[in-house]
């Protein structure tokens, strides 16, 4: 069984994000921190768990982006993925999911994967589209927000449990090959092992030239990004930590909520 995991490198969004002068993306500097998209960590772990039970399975990790995304591919290898594929796409800034999924589908098509996994959402653009768009391009089924799966390799059927809102779950049978987008909580992502880190450092990545589909009609344009206006109702407490604590206690006291 051949498994492909699509992983994305994202900005550490808890840090300060400086907006580029043209307003269209984040300003990157030498000290900008990146990490693997949290949801993709779970997708990769699920692939590695599948590999533990299906011993013939191989796990490839793929990422689209500039030179720096090699970092997350290496991280994937150091957790136990067999091969890393870098679709080298230099244009910095926002790359719409239509373009990313085309680049991934193009590569995946040539490799006949049985299963393609990715996170349910990317923390940066938050669109939940690359997984299902890749499935659409490959004309294979997709299941989103998967929290459990069982693979029947003989009959080429996967039983997936897809999370809905408010604690509801939908159980679905889908045929393979398929794309699954993985939700957090499905597993506990492992840390890289020392032997895998050493292997990852010496492992050659497959590098493929990325292409930006020439202005296909389905593209949207990101005009600008900016800090949203904060709610008018908020009051930010000022002063030292002690003073803020006292202000809070007085607010709680007025509401008669304290012991």
């Amino acid at each position: 069984m051949k498994i492909l995991v699509c992983i994305k490198q994202v900005f550490c969004s808890e840090n300060e994000l400086k907006i580029r002068p043209d307003g269209k993306w984040i300003q990157e500097t030498d000290s900008t921190d990146f990490r693997m998209n949290r949801f993709d960590e779970y997708a990769l772990e699920e692939a590695l768990l599948i590999k533990e039970t299906h011993t013939d399975a191989t796990v490839d990790v793929i990422s689209v982006g500039p030179e720096r995304v090699k970092e997350v591919i290496k991280r994937g290898l150091s957790k136990g993925a067999d091969n890393g594929i870098h679709i080298c796409y230099h244009q910095s800034g926002y790359c719409p999911p239509q373009a990313v999924s085309r680049m991934i589908a193009d590569y995946a098509e040539s490799q006949s994967y049985n299963l393609i996994l990715t996170g349910v959402m990317a923390e940066d653009d938050m669109q939940c589209l690359v997984g299902p768009m890749t499935a659409g391009l490959l004309s294979i089924p997709c299941a989103v927000s998967v929290i459990k799966e069982k693979i029947d390799i003989k009959n080429k059927i996967i039983t997936v449990h897809c999370e809905m809102e408010n604690g509801k779950v939908e159980e679905v049978l889908i045929s393979m090959p398929a794309v699954l987008t993985i939700q957090t909580g499905i597993n506990r992502p492992r840390y890289p092992s020392l032997s895998n880190i050493l292997r990852a450092n010496s492992k050659e990545l497959t590098v493929v030239d990325g292409f930006f589909p020439e202005e296909p009609p389905d593209h949207h344009e990101l005009l600008s990004i900016g800090y949203p206006v904060t709610s008018s109702r908020i009051s930010m407490l000022e002063g030292s930590a002690e003073e803020k604590a006292l202000q809070l206690l007085s607010i709680f006291h007025k509401k008669s909520l304290l012991k």
């Binding site: 999911p97 239509q98 999924s101 349910v120 938050m126 669109q127 939940c128 589209l129 997984g131 299902p132 768009m133 499935a135 659409g136 391009l137 997709c142 989103v144 927000s145 897809c162 999370e163 809905m164 809102e165 987008t181 296909p216 009609p217 389905d218 593209h219 949207h220």
Partner: peptide, 23 residues
């Protein structure tokens, strides 16, 4: 907006070659 409708939106966007914005 929900994840299943993002799935549907993505599928349609590919099939009918349309722009798609979620959330």
């Amino acid at each position: 907006h929900n994840v299943r409708n993002c799935h549907l939106a993505a599928t349609l966007a590919i099939r009918i070659n349309a722009a798609c914005i979620t959330g």
